[in-house]
């Protein structure tokens, strides 16, 4: 079961200081909550690049391939023979390839977002406060029971408005 300490901050620099101190002290796994994306947290956390782009690429390539395939297969299976004209022709079929590239690529991107961000989430789980979608920044440190005190001290020293333990 997850156990840890949650700090709510009104100031962004205070939250960044807390993250830096927690990382330095190797207290535990850090989750940051912010009402809007801020580069300050990216700098503080230095997370890896999002792999959502791989979902996009695979989806887009699959969609384009399917678009060409369905139009060529459909034309060959139910041929409309017009003298001197090819039964399958790539120029108009690029429209299907393009549209399906966008459709499948776009939906794969959303699937990538959901998988990587782990949404839909059925419960809020521990370490969340409704203030984090309003005016506050949140820092949740998931750590062992013996490190809880240290985490609390760091969060308070950094300037957290409110600190509480959750499990």
């Amino acid at each position: 079961m997850a156990q840890g300490m949650l700090g709510a901050f009104l100031e962004i620099d205070a939250a960044c200081d807390a993250i830096a101190a927690l990382r330095k002290g190797n207290v535990g796994a850090i989750t940051v909550f912010t009402p809007t994306p801020r580069h300050e947290f990216e700098h503080a956390l230095q997370p890896p690049k999002s792999p959502v782009r791989k979902f996009t690429l695979i989806g887009a390539l699959s969609g384009a391939t399917f678009g060409y395939w369905i139009s060529i297969w459909g034309s060959n299976y139910w041929p409309m023979v017009v003298g001197g004209k090819p039964i399958s022709t790539w120029i108009p079929y690029t429209i299907f390839a393009f549209e399906l590239m966008v459709l499948v690529g776009g939906l794969s991107t959303v699937a990538g977002l959901f998988i990587m961000a782990r949404v839909p989430r059925l419960t809020m789980t521990v370490g969340y406060d409704p203030r984090f979608s309003g005016s506050h920044y949140g820092v949740w440190v998931e750590c062992a029971p013996e490190k809880l005190k240290e985490a609390e001290t760091i969060l308070r020293q950094a300037g957290a408005e409110d600190v509480r333990s959750e499990q």
Partner: peptide, 24 residues
């Protein structure tokens, strides 16, 4: 969908939004 505004969610969100914009 249980969105929590975590930095992890925002990171993937920003990337997904960029690609959706690039497709649109």
């Amino acid at each position: 969908f249980g969105w929590r505004n975590s930095e992890n969610e925002w990171r993937h969100f920003a990337r997904a939004y960029l690609f959706l914009a690039a497709f649109s």
